[in-house]
Design a protein around this nucleic acid. Structure first.
Length: 869
RNA sequence: GCCGGGGUGGCGGAACUGGUAGACGCGCUGGAUUCAAAAUCCAGUUUUGGAAACAAAGUGAGGGUUCGAUUCCCUCCCCCGGCACCA
């Protein structure tokens, strides 16, 4: 018999995770257990968890994400697959700049120290990661390829520059992220934020809108919620472009509408404050000028704009209705955005809620043109937004909405005033950020040649790392030596682009780079072995933006011939967030300081309200919303304390057991004790089992009923756990099933040779099934139970269907839908036999007295419902 | 505001395809063990009535479909995520 290093030692009576976890992890490192290579003869399985932002310390949300990935990876490995599970760092981004401001540490140094700390924490948790492929997105050897890609996209015409709005802090003279705008004010200065237009780079994701939308149909193993959200985000709609002439002028006002059938109901137009007509109107009208200025005074966040009061002012201009020829007023409105479509809309207050509210407020006419179906009863003074029959629409009266849409578009086309059009809600991807800690955008501005991509042989454009960072101006912008260069085309002095990329750029292609560490191009042929990703796992908060950019980038890589599939990941699991309460104090300067859950104590006051005090000074802090754990809210729970107290296996087991992965989890560590007790019971149960003696060979025909019961439980459990892990992703119910098996196994007290054989089969399978969840413990126990070799390569327990056959099943008897009895019956009984058994039951008899059975519903082997009266 | 998800015992959750509501775990109560405590083990634990058998109510609120609804439909309330510069 081959004895492994671990089995040579006698088993200790008590479970000591510290000892065995360190020992097992050391062995994994020595044998490079999880280093993956491209093995042609073996089926590959690429399991990828979203890469973390190195915020400084792992929080429970990370543990949840990576524990899920690790269970799937280890399960697939036990199924015989060649598994790749890599890890890296999404290392650029705002928090490093914030830390630099707060603590005076250069972002690069802060980031790299955080990475070292978090890597150590991940290793302590025992995830089966291939560390040989690790990288940080701030490594020049990573971002150089992203710069190369961008210059290639420029040459392909998939990149362009245009003016776009940003949040401008007029006091700090800096651009703010939406997150840095709090109630309309700059988070540090407290100044009212303004919208300001600056030139920015865009990627033409809209060129792929149709493919991104239609491709969702080819992703059966992505959650519906994600696909629906992406569909709505892309927002393909079919409608018409309609041109309204501005009265007494040659100017045409072009609008897009999905409801050309309501054209006769258009009683006014609305244009954005930045629209040329608005600017023109403001030139000789102080009120309009003041209104336009007022419109500038808000941030750019869409949610805030939607919630803001809808305001407008008459521009004084009139538009000519394209079909009636009548003049209608043109208003300037704060809810129309220049960056959307044409910056102008036609308003049909009778059939659009927002237009209705606006028209009511400003006394604009409301003309109904769609008659709702007769059976619909509608409250008065409300917009009817459905379809119906046309009225008040001249010769179009009587047509249905659908017919009218076609007819109106045809008429407009004949008159040269419009045509059918398909539009998308999706906007091109703005990738410019006015920040220091990001990937430099590889563009040189030349007075003669314009914006020129940095030639490939001059890449990467390195980000200087040893800088002093004040937080107001980017070191790139303030360093003339870095900025100044020569134009690659004409050789004359020129300036570098000082903006950096949106960090979504880095996280859009990292999955491909993991496949080919050290490749001398963006990716190489090894990507063809590993891609697409078999299982992608990450937070539901990434359902739209990251996952859309990720899909988009894959299509770009495909069109450059670098990958050969249409979608980056075939299966997706979105875990719910781990959320926790937040605690804060407002500073006199208007800023907010956030405190972590370990820094405060929460209790109830005499009025029964929850109050919190800061432990450090005993003074109260405010209790904020319950939100996802984040650096900015400081509400992350560090798993380190739990790992030190209970070991990694207990922590992994508990986060998986606490809730199904797709549900959000409000953090509380009560219950960790239960996970810990369970592992201790497994340990002591096996210890006792080994003490009793050696098991005989299993003889199926010689088993007692109790022995058969245990085997049935075991094989039911194998079937359930396999299904829960592989198909349902409900690790919580898989663990519950293993607990049930363990409970029955501990009660099974049978020292006979066959009893020990059945117990040994069950303990061994239990340890195998638990291995993906608590790998250290199971790796250690496997050889004790006589398992050969690595548990990773021992396969997955097989279901013995014979063992699952039952000779009796519970059938529920209902009378009028209420449970009145439970019968233990042989399987496969027909309705008559089941009814006979039910009528023999005393309690059922009681409920059948004095009534007659009117109807019988029989679900074989499950239920008998007697409808009586 | 718009899009997506959720709401079940004291708590986390289970019930997978319309068929036993509350698996599993935490907590709590009682008991065993102990000089004592911790740990461990055993029993109980949705609410109400009852010694029990059993009965009634019960899955955010209200309504509907059905022999039967946590599950399907409608209206509403609350919570969470996203909304294009947090990642």
């Amino acid at each position: 018999m081959i004895r492994t290093q671990l089995s040579a030692k006698p088993m200790q009576a008590t479970y000591n995770p510290k000892l065995i976890e360190a020992e097992v992890q050391q062995r994994w490192t020595q044998t490079r257990q999880f280093q993956a290579s491209e093995l042609a003869g073996q089926e590959k399985y690429y399991c990828l968890s979203m890469l973390p932002y190195p915020s400084g310390a792992l929080h429970i949300g990370h543990v949840r994400n990576y524990s899920i990935g690790d269970v799937i990876s280890r399960y697939q490995r036990m199924q015989g697959k060649n598994v790749l599970q890599p890890m890296g760092w999404d290392a650029f981004g705002l928090p490093a700049e914030n830390a630099a401001i707060k603590h005076g540490v250069p972002p690069a140094k802060w980031t790299r120290e955080n990475i070292a700390q978090m890597r150590a924490q991940l290793q302590q948790l025992g995830f089966a990661l291939d560390w040989s492929r690790e990288f940080a997105t701030c490594d020049p050897d990573y971002y150089r390829w992203e710069q190369l890609m961008f210059t290639r996209l420029m040459k392909q015409g998939l990149v362009y520059n245009k003016l776009a709005e940003v949040n401008w802090d007029p006091v700090d003279q800096t651009v703010l992220a939406n997150e840095q705008v709090v109630e309309g004010r700059g988070w540090r200065s407290g100044a009212l934020v303004e919208r300001r237009e600056i030139p920015q780079w865009f990627l033409k994701i809209t060129a792929y809108a149709d493919e991104l939308l239609d491709g969702l149909d080819d992703l059966p193993d992505w959650p519906d919620a994600v696909k629906i959200m992406q569909r709505n985000w892309i927002g393909r709609s079919h409608g018409a472009e309609i041109r309204f002439q501005v009265a007494d002028s040659d100017t045409m006002l072009e609008v897009y509408s999905t409801r050309p059938d309501t054209l006769y109901g258009a009683t006014y137009m609305a244009v954005a404050a930045q629209h040329p007509l608005a600017v023109q109107a403001a030139a000789d009208n102080a009120d309009i000028a003041a209104f336009i200025e007022q419109c500038q005074r808000s941030g750019t966040a869409q949610a805030d704009l939607d919630r803001a009061e809808k305001l407008g002012i008459d521009s004084g201009f009139k538009a000519v209705h394209p079909l009636t020829g009548k003049p209608i007023p043109i208003w300037i409105a704060n809810f129309v955005l220049m960056s959307y479509g044409t910056g102008a809309v036609m308003s049909v207050p009778a059939h659009d809620e927002r237009d209705h509210a606006f028209a009511s407020k400003y006394g604009l006419p409301i003309v109904p043109v769609i008659q709702p179906p007769a059976e619909l009863e509608l409250p008065a003074d409300v917009a009817y937004t459905g379809s119906g029959t046309l009225i008040n629409s001249a010769e179009f009266d009587g047509l249905s909405s659908d017919q009218a849409k076609l007819a109106m578009v045809q008429r407009l086309a004949e008159q040269g005033l419009g045509q059918a059009s398909t539009q998308y809600r999706l906007r091109d991807w703005g990738v410019s950020r006015q920040r220091y800690w990001g990937c430099p955008i590889p563009v040189i501005y030349c007075q003669h040649c314009g914006a020129v991509p940095v030639p490939e042989d001059q890449l990467p454009v390195l980000l200087p790392e040893d800088v002093a960072f004040s937080g107001v101006t980017s070191p790139l912008k303030s360093d003339p030596a870095w900025r100044q260069t020569q134009c690659p085309q004409c050789g004359k002095p020129a300036e570098r682009e000082t903006d950096t990329f949106d960090t979504f750029m880095e996280s859009s292609w990292y999955y491909a780079r993991y496949c080919c560490p050290g490749a001398q191009d963006m990716v190489d042929e090894r990507a063809d072995y590993w891609l697409p990703v078999n299982q992608y796992i990450g937070g539901i908060e990434h359902a739209i933006m990251h996952l859309l950019y990720f899909r988009f980038y894959h299509k770009l890589l495909r069109d450059f011939g670098m990958v050969h599939s249409d979608e980056p990941a075939t299966r997706l699991l979105c875990q719910g967030m781990v959320v926790a309460e937040t605690y804060f104090r407002k500073q006199p300067d208007g800023s907010t300081v956030w405190f972590g859950p370990t820094e405060v104590e929460v209790s109830s006051n005499s009025a029964g309200d929850r109050v919190a005090v800061l432990l450090a000074d005993g003074a109260p802090v405010q209790i904020g919303a319950t939100e996802k754990m984040s650096k900015s809210r400081n509400n992350g729970v560090n798993p380190q304390d739990l790992v030190e107290r209970y070991g990694a296996d207990t922590v992994r087991l508990f986060v998986l057991f606490a809730a199904p992965p797709d549900q959000s989890l409000e953090w509380s560590d009560s219950g960790v004790e239960g996970a810990w007790r369970f592992l201790r019971r497994i340990w002591s149960g096996i210890h006792q089992h080994l003490q009793v003696g050696a098991p005989a060979a299993l003889e199926h025909s010689a088993l007692t009923p109790a022995q058969r019961d245990l085997r049935r439980k075991l094989h039911d459990t194998i079937a359930k756990v396999s299904d829960d892990i592989e198909r349902r992703y409900t690790f919580n119910t898989a663990i519950a099933a293993l607990m049930e098996l363990s409970n029955q196994l501990q009660r099974f007290d049978d020292a006979s040779p066959q009893g020990l054989a059945v117990a040994r089969e069950a303990w061994s399978a239990l340890v195998q099934m638990l291995h993906p969840v608590t790998p250290h413990l199971c790796t250690h126990l496997w050889p004790q139970l006589g398992g050969h070799g690595d548990i990773e390569h021992a396969g997955w327990p097989q279901v013995d269907e014979q063992a699952r056959v039952r000779d009796a099943i519970t059938v529920v008897v209902q009378v009028n839908g209420k449970v009145r009895g439970k019968l233990e019956l042989a399987p496969g009984l027909d309705q008559a036999a089941t009814l006979a058994a039910a009528q023999a039951d005393q309690n059922v008899q009681r409920h059948l007295q004095g009534v007659s059975i009117r109807k019988i519903i029989h679900v074989p082997d499950k239920l008998l419902n007697l409808v009586v009266g």
